[in-house]
């Protein structure tokens, strides 16, 4: 009796202790290493043409040639300072990235292709566009205060 009771308790507790979670890579789609950090977004979104064929933002947004497309340089030495708390050229009432507030970040409006944007949805030569999962991860980085991490 006692033995079986202990066994029962041990089993049920072991059950409950098995905390589990979805893997980030399960929603990161064609960029399985993407995380909500600046360096990861820089490497996997801005500077990488992913396996789904979505163009690297830096195939246009550079300092090479004439003015950068949209007045935005996303190469890694420049990107952070070009985004954080910088008013968008197209919709100056919005910052490109408002730390802590993805809804008030124009870059989110552009990659989601929202109704109020000027110009086209990004990447300009899409589809493919960023996947819903990639956009969620971008928004989460902004929500976490858009740190330079």
């Amino acid at each position: 009796m006692r033995r079986s009771r202990q066994l029962f308790l041990a089993l049920t507790l072991a059950f409950g202790a098995a905390a589990c979670d979805e893997k980030l890579s399960s929603i990161a789609g064609p960029t399985p290493d993407l995380e909500p950090t600046f360096s990861s977004i820089q490497a996997n979104i801005f500077e990488l043409t992913d396996s789904a064929g979505r163009n690297a933002c830096t195939s246009c947004h550079t300092n090479v040639g004439r003015n950068p497309a949209g007045g935005l340089n996303l190469l890694h030495d420049a990107a952070y300072d070009q985004l954080i708390n910088v008013s968008a050229i197209q919709v100056p009432a919005l910052k490109r990235v408002t730390p802590g507030d993805p809804q008030a970040s124009y870059v989110v409006h552009k990659v989601e292709g929202r109704a109020g944007i000027v110009g086209t949805r990004m990447p300009r030569n899409g589809p493919p566009y960023m996947t819903d999962g990639q956009i969620l991860i971008l928004k989460r980085w902004i929500e976490l205060g858009a740190p330079r991490n």
């Binding site: 589990c20 979805e22 980030l24 929603i27």
Partner: peptide
């Protein structure tokens, strides 16, 4: 209850 949010924990405040 753990893991109530269906998104990965990196993307949510409360799971």
């Amino acid at each position: 209850v753990n893991n109530t949010n269906t998104l990965p924990k990196e993307l949510v405040d409360d799971n």
